[in-house]
């Protein structure tokens, strides 16, 4: 069974290893180039918040952003590919091509056939997801201190580090396998799988709001929070009396005539004005130290959903009708 699973699914496995390899080379090339550039261009004490580092930090960010253009798509593309090519054909192709009559009439009971296949491929998918996470995390570490780390606050980043890729890929594989076993045709099963993932991704991202009650932070400016890597959920002004601001800002601090009221300069002036009058900003934040809590909760949800889908795939496979 181990050989059979490898032989029947090696194309997907090798393609996945190949794509991860390409990504690895890209990340490695970026890491080498960044390290060399940083060694040659970093002023003493940089990276850091000191204004002297500003230009260096910007250079670092450009190097980061170049690769993030690719990495940022992975939270959607990765699970979609895994679900469509690893999961959906697993049972559907056997039924479509009639080979289930061959596979399920050998001396291996169908229950074991499906259990071994789902088990082995689940393990492989988790390993591949973990490999992605490790590669991205190592590369991401190079930029520490140069600009705010968005691993918690940016879903595009949150879902390629930590436990997320392994959990997402397992979930996607399970959705694909279940769709294939229930629909029994490969292409429709692939389409349904991609659709489910396209809905699940934003749903899971939105659900983060319920993982933990945000902490209220007063008297800290936004840049500090961003530099921490905290996720800002909500922000508002409170008056000197500690109550929510009831009067529109324009009334309290009307913009100076002749300036663009929506420009950043005007915004800074407005904030300075409000601060001078005793107003303070209040932020609802998910502090950066909740990163692993959030990763854990999300992975837990995805693993539970994956188990449900795997059970559905087993049920769909064993429900014999021919």
């Amino acid at each position: 069974m181990v050989w059979l699973t490898w032989r029947q699914h090696r194309a997907q496995m090798l393609a996945t290893i190949g794509l991860l390899g390409v990504l690895g080379v890209l990340l490695l090339a970026s890491a080498i180039e960044t390290t060399q550039w940083a060694a040659a261009n970093a002023p003493a004490g940089c990276p850091g918040l000191d204004p002297i580092c500003r230009s260096f930090n910007r250079g670092m960010y450009e190097r980061y952003d170049l690769v993030y253009q690719v990495v940022g798509f992975l939270p959607l593309i990765g699970p979609a590919l895994i679900g469509a090519f690893w999961g959906a054909p697993l049972v559907a192709r056997e039924i479509e091509r009639g080979t289930f009559r061959l596979a399920w009439t050998q001396s291996v009971p169908t229950k074991r056939w499906v259990a071994v296949k789902l088990g082995m491929l689940s393990a492989a998918v988790v390993l591949a997801g973990a490999a992605l996470s490790i590669m991205v995390t190592l590369w991401n570490g190079l930029f520490h201190g140069a600009f705010p780390d968005t691993s918690l606050s940016n879903p595009g980043k949150f879902n390629v580090v930590g436990l997320a890729p392994a959990a997402w890929w397992l979930f996607a594989f399970a959705v694909g396998a279940a769709a294939g076993a229930l629909i029994r045709r490969t292409i429709p099963a692939m389409a349904v799988t991609v659709a489910v993932i396209a809905v699940a991704l934003p749903a899971i991202i939105i659900s983060q709001d319920f993982y933990a009650a945000p902490a209220e932070v007063i008297g800290v400016d936004r840049d500090t929070l961003m530099n921490n890597g905290d996720m800002i959920v909500e922000e508002k002004w409170i008056g000197p009396d500690g109550r929510d601001m009831t009067v529109p800002t324009e009334t309290l601090c009307p913009p100076a005539g002749g300036t663009d009221a929506s420009g950043s300069r005007a915004e800074i002036a407005e904030q300075d004005c409000l601060a001078a009058k005793g107003y303070q900003m209040v932020f609802d934040v998910q502090p950066v130290n909740r990163f692993w809590l959030f990763q854990g909760i999300q992975a837990f949800i995805l693993v539970i959903a994956a188990c449900f889908c795997l059970a559905l795939a087993v049920w769909g496979t064993l429900r014999r009708r021919t």
Binding site: M1, W3, L4, R7, R97, G98, T99, F100, R101, Q106
Partner: peptide
């Protein structure tokens, strides 16, 4: 043992691999 009407075999397998299939499954 069963030979179904459409004689299902794994298209991408060689004959030797079909025999290996039989060996590991029986």
């Amino acid at each position: 043992a069963f030979l179904a009407q459409d004689k299902p075999l794994y298209d991408s397998f060689t004959v030797a691999e079909m025999l290996k299939f039989g060996r590991v499954m029986n």
